[in-house]
Nucleic acid binder design. Sequence first.
DNA 1: CTCAAGTTGAAATATTTCTGTCATTACGTC
DNA 2: GACGTAATGACAGAAATATTTCAACTTGAG
Lengths: 292, 292
Amino acid sequence: MNQPLKIRLDNALNKGSKADRKIANFMMSGLSELPFETASSIAKKVEVSEATVGRFCRSLGYTSFKNLKDHLKNDIGDHPWLMSDRLRELQGNEIAGDAALASGMELEIAGLVSVYELARTPEWRRAVKRLATRDCVHVAGFQTERGIAQYFANQLQYIRDRVTLLDLAGGNFIETLATDQDACLVIFEARRYSRLAKLLAQEARAAGIPVTLVTDVFCDWGHAVADEVFAVRTQFHQFWDSTALMASLSNLLIHGVFTELGPEVDNRLDKIARLYGRFTGHVGAPQAQVEN
Amino acid sequence: MNQPLKIRLDNALNKGSKADRKIANFMMSGLSELPFETASSIAKKVEVSEATVGRFCRSLGYTSFKNLKDHLKNDIGDHPWLMSDRLRELQGNEIAGDAALASGMELEIAGLVSVYELARTPEWRRAVKRLATRDCVHVAGFQTERGIAQYFANQLQYIRDRVTLLDLAGGNFIETLATDQDACLVIFEARRYSRLAKLLAQEARAAGIPVTLVTDVFCDWGHAVADEVFAVRTQFHQFWDSTALMASLSNLLIHGVFTELGPEVDNRLDKIARLYGRFTGHVGAPQAQVEN
DNA sequence: CTCAAGTTGAAATATTTCTGTCATTACGTC
DNA sequence: GACGTAATGACAGAAATATTTCAACTTGAG
């Protein structure tokens, strides 16, 4: 019941009727074109009726061709890997509320994959390089994203100097930005709190400070005022949008900067670890991971 | 007249009207999802009318949104929309660093699945119920987890009263805890900063305040001092541990509390939305999700 | 060959998506 | 502030896409 499209198609190829095999075959050979098709366009191409295409999709377990396309978007399908059993248990269990939970999880996983994809773009590399090399990094976040901003800033502070979390209560950030000529700015923002963030970005840009914006896909001004826009997905069937993936994105950024800085960072970590050991009673770098 | 979509969108970003920029921005931030959209689905998401989306496409030089999609098919060959393709690409690419990235992603996905599993345990339900019903909720987090704690607290404040983020700089939290008899406490913690968190948990327990602990899987004292322990995975082949999944866990908790509170919460959201609207210039609940 | 079961397409219907018109609103100019 | 232009959304109609119904067809067992 909850298999990836490909497996289902494979099944249909064997057990299905003539028309079913035609359709399955067509779909198999052009999975990546599928989003552009409609039930009727496929019907024409494989010379069956629209009705048959619809029926075929239903026989595969989807409610319609459109439904199939929707699943295609987030098909984490052929990865039995890590989760299959547990995931399937979640997915199979249609007790009230849990279905939404399970589909939300799929969406969030898809969103997480998107975040990792962002980490391979030229924009990402540019932002990482800048965060590693500029004299000074400002970080800002509003409302709930303030927490994420702090999370990011705190971690960045471990691996480099001169990271400041902007306090924007008053809205008087201009002077803060003006203090350093070789600064850059990272803003965490989600649509619902746009105004201040936009203002900040504009002023930073006016001051010649490059801006990296982490936001959701609904932000309608990002590309106009930021040097890089990293848009994460936020809708996971929860009662309001979740910006949790920004934290994952943060960690990936941090990791990137760490890699970029390379050995430079070691001294700093040691120093901090010593300072920090006094405070917590621990010794050693703060849980720096052993390379494996 | 024969430019790729991206260039045209960039153009629209500068020269276009407000609605045009909204649409352009949205398309920019998710080119690879575009084939799955329709004019009206986009219209809903960016909050313009369907007509405007149509007009926008025409202003870009296409005859319709559908026509735009058709061009997209050829335009961006390097944007596979199939999740599995994208995963494969990440995994197949063994350029230095990327292999680690891909395997890290798998681990993080597995970790995310674990988080969703936590949300189905009896402990989870118990914690959610408590967070919904107790008079007062304290939230605490240390070092980098302080940001996560703030993220959690901020969101919880939207849906219920009397949520406080403990400031633990001095370590004098005892009095704070003692002020209310019907309180509960949520601690975000990760191994490297254990001492204070443990102390806090102990004192809370001594004061009769139930403790919910969100930590990593290495925490060795949690079960002794907390009523519930939610352990998230943290090792994703990054140079140090990532507690990003705690943010996802936070959102799930929030969602749970919201569901538990049910209609009660609506008034509060409205009130806040109004307050908040004055601040940001927005109206309506803060991006409460429309059920679909 | 006959019948039953399953499969299919045509036509009708329902639904979704798109376009055109028009009144309203926003914006810049004077 | 008044004016004209441009932008926008609501609405309605048009087109497309999808679904249902039903009769015709195919297939295979007897």
